[in-house]
């Protein structure tokens, strides 16, 4: 009967628990990001803005806040009002319809502020490059402080990049 011990039975269920996903601190950060991390001192509030994304990146952002990744343990939080934020988290190519609201949201964030370009579309318009509704990349319109490549980037890599910004 020794192979029916309590540990063995609970051990079966332990295996169903999700593996902890390693989210390392980024190996190298740009001087701009380092300066922002000193300013943020362990707390970063971001306003997410969809400038014309296919919603792939949004899925990854949503799972970033799930219990598995739990981005908030690093002091990173998505906020509703840009007035309360340290920066913008922008996804997608900047479409004609969204360029005005993007600028207005940017204006609404108090200075000093950071702009994070999330996903390949935000970096270089991705598959939407040259489409008639697209005005340009985020970098054409706003100064970008941090770029997170990927189509879509995995939650772990998003968090890794953001950890550089928050400094912990």
């Amino acid at each position: 009967m020794m192979f029916l011990s309590i540990e063995r039975i609970t051990g079966i269920f332990k295996d169903f628990r999700p593996k902890s996903i390693s989210v390392p601190f980024p190996s190298e950060v740009t001087p701009g990001v380092q300066e922002a991390s000193r300013r943020n001192r362990g707390s970063l509030q971001l306003r997410h803005l969809d400038a014309g994304s296919c919603n792939g990146c949004e899925m990854e952002i949503a799972s970033m806040t799930s219990p598995i990744y739990d981005v908030e343990r690093f002091g990173i939080k998505l906020e509703a009002s840009p007035r309360h934020c340290d920066g913008l988290l922008v996804t997608g190519p900047v479409t004609r319809n969204m360029s005005g609201p993007l600028l207005k949201t940017y204006e609404a964030v108090p200075q000093p502020r950071v702009v994070v370009a999330l996903g390949d579309c935000a970096l270089d318009c991705g598959v939407f490059k040259g489409a008639y509704g697209v005005e340009g990349t985020l970098g054409d319109i706003l100064p970008v402080d941090l770029e997170i490549p990927g189509c879509p980037p995995e939650p772990a890599s998003i968090i890794t990049a953001l950890r550089g910004l928050v400094g912990r």
Partner: peptide, 12 residues
């Protein structure tokens, strides 16, 4: 002090 428009959810 920087004066900006009241936040209206990016409304035009």
């Amino acid at each position: 002090v920087r004066r900006a428009e009241a936040w209206g959810c990016g409304r035009e």
